[in-house]
Design a protein around this nucleic acid. Sequence first.
DNA 1: AATGTCTGCACAATCGATATAGCAAAGGGA
DNA 2: TCCCTTTGCTATATCGATTGTGCAGACATT
Lengths: 376, 376
Amino acid sequence: MICTIDIAHQAAKRLESSRSFLSKTVAMTRAPRKATIYDIARLSGASPSTVSAALGESWRTRRISEATVEAIRKVAAEQGYSANMQARGLRKARSGLVGMIIPLHDNRFFTALSQSFEAFARERGLVPVIASSLREPEEERRIVETLISYAVDFLFIAGATDPDTVSRMCKAADLRHIFVDLPGRGAPSVVSDNHKGAAELTRRLLVDRPVTGQTPRDRLYLIGGDASDYATGRRIEAFRDVLTEAGIPPLPEQIIACGYAPRSAMREIAALCDRLGGLPGGLLVNSLTVFEGVLGHLSGLPAEALRASVIGCYDYDPFAAWLQFPVHMVRQDAHGLIREAYRMIDDNVRSLVLTMVEPEQIAPRTFYDSPFADRG
Amino acid sequence: MICTIDIAHQAAKRLESSRSFLSKTVAMTRAPRKATIYDIARLSGASPSTVSAALGESWRTRRISEATVEAIRKVAAEQGYSANMQARGLRKARSGLVGMIIPLHDNRFFTALSQSFEAFARERGLVPVIASSLREPEEERRIVETLISYAVDFLFIAGATDPDTVSRMCKAADLRHIFVDLPGRGAPSVVSDNHKGAAELTRRLLVDRPVTGQTPRDRLYLIGGDASDYATGRRIEAFRDVLTEAGIPPLPEQIIACGYAPRSAMREIAALCDRLGGLPGGLLVNSLTVFEGVLGHLSGLPAEALRASVIGCYDYDPFAAWLQFPVHMVRQDAHGLIREAYRMIDDNVRSLVLTMVEPEQIAPRTFYDSPFADRG
DNA sequence: AATGTCTGCACAATCGATATAGCAAAGGGA
DNA sequence: TCCCTTTGCTATATCGATTGTGCAGACATT
C-alpha cells in the first residue's frame, strides 16, 4: 500500500568511495546560519542600525544617504538576507500575521472564505494563518489563545461557536476581531442576509414543489443546523415566515435542526422518510455538510422517488448544483463578506455593527465561476 | 446589497448623557498590556528566569521546587498569562509554526490535505500555516521566503510548481521540507501512486465504455493537467500503457493536457466535442478543477448525449460522485500522504526518498465518509 | 572666529523569553 | 569544625530587529 524508493541510493554509493569528499561537503554545508543585519553591517562597513534603516522604510527620516542605502541593499541581496520576523515582531509588538478561524476546511463555503481571506491579506503584505475549530468551543478557545500568543494583528472568526468567550479573550489581549458568518456581541460582525436568502429559497421550493396536498408528506421540511446558532435561527424564521404567509404554517416536526454532521443528517433524513413513507414534497438543507449526509441517503433511492420532491440547499457547491436531481442553491457572497470585514479593519471600525451581505439564488444546473477560477 | 446596522447606537446614546462614566471606562480599559514573565515575577516574588522555568518544562532540571512552581503557575493563571511566541521563537530559533503550501483552497483534494496537515500539527502542539500558491511559481517563491522569515519549523509543499528553487531556498535557510503530491529532487517526497490509480481508472473506463468501435469518437480521451508535471506525466503514461495493452494505443490528440483552469478545460472539451460531433466514448478528467470546467460544458448537453459516454475523474469529490451521470473517481489518500510526510519529519529522514501511497477507486454513486465527517 | 544648523551616521536601550553560570544556604561526612 | 555536595534560586547574556539619542563634521551666518 505504501512504497518507498531511495532515489539517492546510487549517488550515496558513489560517494562512499571518496569519504574525504563527503566530509568536506558536509563541513562546507554545515551551519548555513541565516544572515542578520549584523552580518550585513560587517560586510558593508555600516552599523546595524543603519542597515536596519536602509533595508526598511525609515532610511529617509533617519537621514541615511541614498548611496549608503544602495550599497547596503546590494550586500543584503548578495547574501540573500531576509528579516527575522520574530525579532521584528517582538520589537514592534505586531507580527504581520493575521488569523482566521473557520469550522472546517473541507467545505466550499468556508474554503471560499479562506481563499478570499488569504488574497486580501497578501494584498496588504500580511501572512494569513487559517485554523479550523471543527465547531468545538474548546478547540476554538485554544486556537484564539495560540493566535494571541503569536500576536496576530487581527482575527476573523467564521462560524463562531462561543463568540462571547472569544471576544472576552481578544479584548484582554487588545486584539481586534471581526465575526463572519455567525455574529458576536462583542465585536463588529459581517454576515449573510440569512433571512432573505432562506425566504427566497423557501419560496422557490414552494413554487417548484411537485405536489400541492396538505398531508405531512406533501409539506416542506428543513434539515440541519443548530437551532441555537444565529444563521440557522434566521433561516428557520424565514422558512416559518414564508410558509405562514402562504397559509401553511409549519409544524414543529417540519424543522429538524440536527446539527451539521453528515452522519446525523443521514440518520435523520432516513428516519423522516420512514415516518412519511417516502421523501417529503420539499427539503431545505441547511448546509453543505448536511447535504453530504442527505446525499448519503438519497443515493440509495430510485430516481422516481426523487422526482416526487424538490430539494434546496443553503450554500453552493459547483458539483452539487449538477446532481442527478435538480437542486436550488443559495450562494453566499464569501468574497463580499471578507471584503467587508477587511474594510472594517482598514477603517478601524470598533463600534458594534452588524453588516449584512446579500446571498444569491442559484438555479439548478447553473455553471458558476469562482473569483479564483482562472487559477484552477 | 450591503446593509449595516449599528447595534450599539442605543447604548452609546445612553452613555452620552454621562460623559464622566464613559471616560472613566475608557481610562480603565486602556492599555491592557499582556502580562509577561516579568509581571508574573513581580507578583509572585520570584525572578523572571524562575518564572520562565516554572511555566515551561525545564523546572525539574533547573531545580525549582514544586511549591514554587505551583505558586507561580497560580499567579500566571490568575493573570491569564500566555507566552509571547515571538520572544520564545527568537531565543530558541524555532517558532512552533509549520508551513504548508497548496495550489488552492477551493478543491476537495487539497482541503483534505489541509485538514490532515492541521490535525497532525495540532497533535504535536504546532501551529499550521497554510498558504496557497495558485500554482504560480512567483507566488510560491514569495511564500517560501515569507515562511522562512517566520522561521517555520518545517514545510510541506503540495503541488510544487518549481520544486528545485524551493529546495534551494529551503536549504539556504536550513529548513526541512517535504514534497507532497508532486515530488521534488531536493527533498523527500510523498506522492500518490499515480500510475496505478490512473491505470485502474483507465481500465474501468475501457470496460464501461458504451461503444466499442474504433472511430476517433469511440476512443478514450484524457483531459487536463500539465504534461510537464510529474503527476500528470505518470497518469498519461498509465493511460497510454493500458490502451496500448488493450491493442488501441492512443493518438496524440487523445491526450489534452490543457492545464488546470476550469475555463480552459471548458473550452477544450467544447472544441473536442465539435471535432468529434459529440462526446467521446470515454473521458478521463485529470483533476477536480478541470472537472468543474468539463461540467460547465456537459451541463449544456441533453441526457442522452451523456449516456453515450463514460466519465472518470482523477480525484474525488463527494458531490461529483453523485452527478446526473455516473462518474468513476479516484480518491487519493490525503490523510495517508500527510501521515507519511509527518513520519519523515518525526524520523528525521533527510535522504532523497520517494514514498508512494496508493489511491483508491470509487465507483459511481458511492457515499464516502471523510476522516473528519463527524465534525461536519 | 564664534555660533548655529544640517547631514550622516553610530551607540545603546529595548522587546520577552531562554539558558548558562554562579551564589548562598542547607545538609552530610571526616 | 572544616570541607564538599546538593538544593533552590538569581543574575546576566543572548536571540535580531527597531528606535531615541548623541556626536562628529560640513556648511552657512553674523
